[in-house]
């Protein structure tokens, strides 16, 4: 059955869709866009992260991608919501990663070798950062000043912190990657709210027709973005 706005089963159908491998890997899914868009427009209740974890994400993602003179930050763009929704997809379960053992560590340039899929990295990583924050500053991450939060993120990025089983740098890179995805993915997935990420970059979204703009001698493209579901800004 095709999900449509009038279909009373829409929400469950859409939820099912994002969780399936076929949506992400295989066939096309005619007209799923409008259903996903409607889903993304609803008030959001986190399903994977608990309240404390979600609060951590709201704070940490905003430091990685802060609101400033360039445009909105992670919070206004809905990045935490994007992350929670992603945790319910095959990606979070590592379904297209090779996850067979043994898991031996080696030089960094030979790539990721941990036995953890993204949802494990988040669960363990967030707990690890909260523990580190209390140890170093006596408070949870979200209660710290922006400066202190930046110090922690810098330490994670620099590789000097171990978060239990997980190197701090691994968690940092996972969080940075997914935060930027949430800022710039189509709003279908809950982030890039109001197309704010795309407006910042001057990216026209799903217009995908530049026949007249192949070479305009360096002029700025004049039309604002449109999303896959037809949202404009």
């Amino acid at each position: 059955m095709e999900p449509t706005l009038n279909n009373p089963f829409r929400r469950s159908v859409v939820k099912g869709l994002l969780g399936t491998t076929s949506f992400w890997m295989a066939s096309g899914n005619a007209r799923w866009a409008e259903a996903l868009a409607a889903e993304a427009a609803q008030p959001y209740q986190p399903a994977f992260f608990n309240a404390a974890e979600y609060q951590f994400l709201e704070s940490a993602c905003e430091r990685l991608f802060p609101a400033d003179h360039n445009g909105p930050g992670a919070k206004a763009l809905g990045v935490a919501e994007f992350l929670d929704r992603q945790m319910q997809t095959p990606y979070a379960r590592g379904e297209n990663w090779y996850m067979s053992g043994p898991f031996e560590q080696g030089p960094a340039n030979l790539g990721y070798q941990l036995p953890f899929v993204p949802k494990d990295l988040y669960r363990k990583g967030i707990a690890g950062v909260e523990h580190y924050a209390r140890q170093q500053y006596g408070k949870g991450f979200s209660a710290l000043s922006a400066l202190q939060q930046d110090e922690i993120l810098t330490a994670l990025e620099g590789g000097s912190v171990q978060l239990g089983d997980i190197p701090g740098r691994v968690f940092f890179e996972q969080l940075r990657t997914n935060t930027l995805e949430g800022a710039f993915a189509d709003p279908l997935y809950g982030g890039n709210r109001g197309l704010g990420g795309w407006i910042m970059l001057g990216f026209p979204g799903a217009r995908a027709d530049f026949m007249d703009w192949v070479n305009q001698e360096g002029a700025s493209y004049p039309i604002g973005p449109v999303s896959i579901s037809g949202e404009t800004a």
């Binding site: 949506f23 992400w24 066939s27 005619a30 866009a33 993915a185 189509d186 995908a208 896959i228």
Partner: peptide
């Protein structure tokens, strides 16, 4: 799979490596 606009979804395409 190629139908517009679903085919030009960066997250599902190049990022999640469809």
């Amino acid at each position: 799979e190629g139908a517009y606009p679903e085919s030009i979804d960066e997250l599902r395409g190049a990022i999640r490596k469809r």
